[in-house]
Simulated scan of single mutants.
Amino acid sequence: MIEPIPFVDVSGSPYERGRQHGAAVTSRVKRSIELYGGQLGDLGYDREAKTELIGEFAEEIEAFGAHYIEEMRGIADGAGVSLEDVIMINARTEVIAKARMVKNRPVEVTDEHDDGCTGAIILPERSATGELIHGQNWDWRAECAETAIVLRVRREDGPDFLTFVEAGGLARCGMNAAGISITANYLECDRDFTQAGVPLALIRRKVLEQEHLAFAIKAVAATPKACSNNMMLSAVQGFGIDFECAPDEAFPLYPEDGMIVHANHWVGAIALTKVKNTSIPRVPESFYRDWRVKKLLDEAGRKLTVTDLKDALFDDFLSPYSVCRPARPNEQGNLSATVAMVVMQPARGIMEVAPLPAQNRVFTRYSLTEEPMLLAQAAE
Rank of each mutant, 00 (worst) to 15 (best):
A142D: 10
I61K: 07
K103G: 03
W266E: 02
V86H: 04
R47C: 09
H21P: 11
A24S: 15
D192L: 04
E285C: 04
A271F: 01
E34H: 12
K206W: 04
V25G: 05
F243T: 02
S27H: 14
A177S: 12
G65E: 15
R282S: 12
F215W: 12
P224I: 05
E285V: 02
H262Y: 02
F239W: 11
Q20R: 14
T147R: 06
G240S: 02
A340F: 02
A327H: 01
D311V: 08
F193Y: 15
G65T: 08
L151G: 08
W140M: 02
D77T: 12
Q237G: 06
V10D: 00
Y45K: 04
I122D: 06
M344C: 00
I33R: 13
L40G: 01
Q332P: 00
R155D: 07
M1T: 13
L309F: 04
A216R: 02
H67R: 14
L202P: 02
V342F: 03
A214P: 00
P124L: 07
N176C: 08
S11H: 13
A340Y: 05
E3G: 10
M101Q: 15
T163D: 05
C245D: 05
I54E: 05
A66R: 13
F251H: 00
A271P: 01
E256K: 13
E48V: 15
M101D: 10
L374E: 09
D315E: 11
V8C: 06
G18R: 11
R365G: 01
T118L: 03
E209N: 10
E56V: 11
Q136R: 15
E352I: 07
V150L: 09
D114H: 00
V261S: 01
V86K: 04
Y45Q: 03
F363E: 01
R348Y: 00
R282T: 09
A128Y: 06
M232P: 03
Q359W: 08
M344F: 01
Y68R: 11
E112T: 08
D315G: 06
A120C: 15
C117R: 03
A23H: 06
